[in-house]
Simulated assay, not measured.
Amino acid sequence: MLLYTTVGTNDLVRAGRFYDTVLLPLGYARQKEATGEIGYAADGDVRCRFWVVEPFNREPATFGNGVTIALVAPNRAAVDAFHAAALAAGGTDEGAPGLRPFHASFYAAFVRDHDGNKLAAVCEKPE
């Protein structure tokens, strides 16, 4: 359903270091970089699905209250690694890895990046 998503940043270099580290356990890597933006994709994907950008209107980047971007994790170990990588890279814990009440196999972790954007890694496979 979604073509791509973006998160805003006020420091693209710092955000790039954060996302290079945090997205790796989920199988995503930096694929494109241009002035004001960095694009991430899974190996073999023909298009970047996740972008970190400086706001087009040149106003400061802010996060959306109530907005969470959930990324698919291949397994629960990847969720754990995502959470650990985010905290080690200076992110903020918003929910440690674990099962959530949404359904019996919904295993997730939640973090915020340096700009306050909320991310989740989710594995819905029973393990």
Rank of each mutant, 00 (worst) to 15 (best):
M1W: 05
L2F: 15
L3F: 12
L3D: 15
T5A: 15
T6G: 08
T6N: 14
T6P: 08
V7S: 08
G8W: 04
V13Y: 10
V13N: 08
A15I: 04
G16E: 10
F18E: 03
F18D: 05
Y19H: 00
D20S: 07
T21W: 00
L23V: 08
P25F: 02
P25A: 06
L26T: 01
L26W: 01
L26V: 08
G27W: 09
G27I: 02
Y28A: 02
Y28Q: 01
A34Q: 14
T35Q: 14
G36C: 09
E37R: 14
I38P: 01
Y40V: 09
A41V: 07
A41Q: 12
G44L: 08
D45E: 15
V46L: 11
V46R: 05
V46A: 14
W51C: 03
V52P: 00
V53E: 10
E54V: 15
P55M: 08
F56L: 15
F56C: 04
N57T: 10
N57L: 13
R58Q: 15
R58N: 13
R58A: 14
E59A: 14
E59M: 12
E59R: 14
E59F: 11
A61K: 01
A61N: 06
G64C: 08
N65H: 14
G66W: 12
V67G: 06
V67R: 13
T68D: 00
T68M: 13
I69S: 06
I69C: 09
A70T: 14
L71Q: 02
A73P: 01
A73H: 08
A73K: 03
A73N: 05
P74T: 07
P74H: 04
A77G: 13
F82H: 01
A85H: 04
A86P: 10
L87R: 01
L87V: 11
A88R: 11
A88E: 12
A88I: 00
A88V: 00
G90L: 07
G91I: 07
T92E: 10
T92M: 06
T92P: 05
D93P: 03
E94G: 13
G95A: 07
G95M: 03
A96F: 03
A96H: 02
A96K: 13
P97T: 02
P97Y: 04
G98T: 00
G98Y: 04
G98D: 08
R100C: 05
P101E: 07
P101N: 11
F102D: 05
F102T: 09
H103M: 11
A104Q: 10
A104D: 15
S105Q: 01
F106C: 11
Y107A: 05
Y107K: 00
A108I: 06
F110K: 08
F110I: 06
F110Q: 00
V111F: 03
R112C: 01
D113Y: 09
H114T: 08
G116T: 09
G116A: 09
N117L: 05
K118L: 10
A120F: 02
A121V: 05
V122W: 08
C123L: 13
C123F: 03
E124C: 15
E124S: 14
E124Q: 14
E124L: 09
K125G: 09
K125S: 09
P126F: 09
E127G: 11
